[in-house]
Nucleic acid binder design. Sequence first.
DNA 1: TTGTATGCGTTATCAA
DNA 2: TTGATAACGCATACAA
Lengths: 334, 334
Amino acid sequence: MHKPTIQDVARRAGVGVGTVSRVLNNHVAVRDSTRDSVLGAIAELNYTPNPHARRIAGGKSYTISVLLPVVTTEFYVRLLDGLEQAFQEARYDVAIFPLLDRSRLERYLGSHTLAYQADGLVMATYNLTQMFQSGSGIRPYSGPTVLVDAHADTVDCAYMDNLLGGRLAGEYASGLDGNLYAVWVETELDQLFTTRVFDDRRSGFLEAVQRSGGRVGGEYVSSFDSLTARTVAAQLLDEVAYPATVFASADLLAGALLDEAQARGLTVGGELKIIGFDDQPWAQGRGLTTLHQPVEAMGYEAAQLLLSRLSGEDGPPRARRFEPRLIVRASTGG
Amino acid sequence: MHKPTIQDVARRAGVGVGTVSRVLNNHVAVRDSTRDSVLGAIAELNYTPNPHARRIAGGKSYTISVLLPVVTTEFYVRLLDGLEQAFQEARYDVAIFPLLDRSRLERYLGSHTLAYQADGLVMATYNLTQMFQSGSGIRPYSGPTVLVDAHADTVDCAYMDNLLGGRLAGEYASGLDGNLYAVWVETELDQLFTTRVFDDRRSGFLEAVQRSGGRVGGEYVSSFDSLTARTVAAQLLDEVAYPATVFASADLLAGALLDEAQARGLTVGGELKIIGFDDQPWAQGRGLTTLHQPVEAMGYEAAQLLLSRLSGEDGPPRARRFEPRLIVRASTGG
DNA sequence: TTGTATGCGTTATCAA
DNA sequence: TTGATAACGCATACAA
């Protein structure tokens, strides 16, 4: 009748509850045959552990909070895939906290919320660690923390090498014929929510172009929304000297360029070449040359960094670097 | 040294743990003076209850899952404000589950996830209850469920009367001089994620106009993004016969109309009148006549419905209706 | 109105 | 490698 407990499993398997617990938590000291019979009993009873009981007994919450911008993009979906997989393997729950606004951030870290109870914190894209210093109005979070998709010296992090990404784009673009142009994403002004992602892509690109002896004929800036992107695309296509190669620092911008070029009957891949950044799902279908990022792997590794801290790992902050990869498609004539 | 427990509070206040628990849970049978001394001890020790212990002792999770589209709009921020306030008052935690994709929905309701452990479920905008029927591949969720911003007969719900909203817009628009036009939001095709919100606004509007003896000179459809909205706005302003009154069924669309009108030097409020829907924060500043929705109140009431079920309330599904309110501003000459 | 004792379902400790 | 048992922190039934 009632939900089966660890006791029921133990009785069924003819062992003690301790043994069942050991099997559950992958402890080493369990004989294979014993493990099998326990696993069998678990399956027969359709037993699932009560997470609250283990939280109280273990003295931990077995929950990880993930703070991320609420941008509903493929990027964060993939990032969560990587994070959730790793945490699930380690039997941790993941609670997602979209950073809807500042007041909500403060509430999240209030002392009796889910977020504050978490054993660890993952912060995506935004480095909010300075928020946790006293005097910021936000209650300091003292548990282990890891940054993902952002870089910092003071805390573990897994980040994408956007500098390299920009550089790869710059080197490749320099090898193509035509004048070079670029569209950047306007960097946020809010001191709380800032990211260096786009600055890095720009620095890398400019550096590589310069090193190749080339020069950038013009730079454009757009905010991260398709309407502005389309307007900027139109302006850019009006002003550039053809043949032209344009590096768009996000596929969203590259997509607007593709749209606008198509509307004008420009041949993309010929007189106009376009390089994006992100490799969004539609990029392959539309033949966009772009930079692919191992997002899931980055998320998975960030989770591993945090998990290792949770199991007592000590030492200085560690940084794990991930490399974007250039995918050449028709939009650059490839 | 260690985090204070209910024992510490009891000792400090010179009472038993039972009394402290009673104070915590707002039980009636506590003498005022006793309550005060307990409260004092709690404050002095800076005690916060261990939620996991509550959960195991109480046999409940004291957690509510909220499933919502990840549209980062003011609407959902306000909705969450209402929900979270009500649940917090009742000492329930809220876990947010953005419906990023279908596979994630299935994972959310997997039997050992946070969502499945929740005592109740709030579904915003999308009616996913049929997903919980067997055979859909999604594990049925058996706990109490409430729909918010959506209407259904089989389950408690708190919904905005979008039919009325459309009607109010229609009646008001019919009273203005000029030809009538409307822009609708393209309804989603995905069978899983459908909402009647925009259909209702349309039905109400058309009905009211017809009843006023007027007629709609033209209807336009846009998807819910500013780029498309701007394109549609341009097309509309090209084609309509002035003076014209346009009902945009979402402020996002109305904003695009304002932008495009401004770019053309059209006088909004005169030859061109615009009515929006949502009353977004910028609507007041830009003088947009629009429909304001009591979103927080709707969220709060949805939470109350769920909480009453949690405390044993029985009976047929209840529906709570909320009414949008027309706010007249300069965009219609008001 | 209050204190005490029991139980919730685990994990961890200890002895075997 | 295992089983028995003591925590874990709270809610609640029961006794006072």
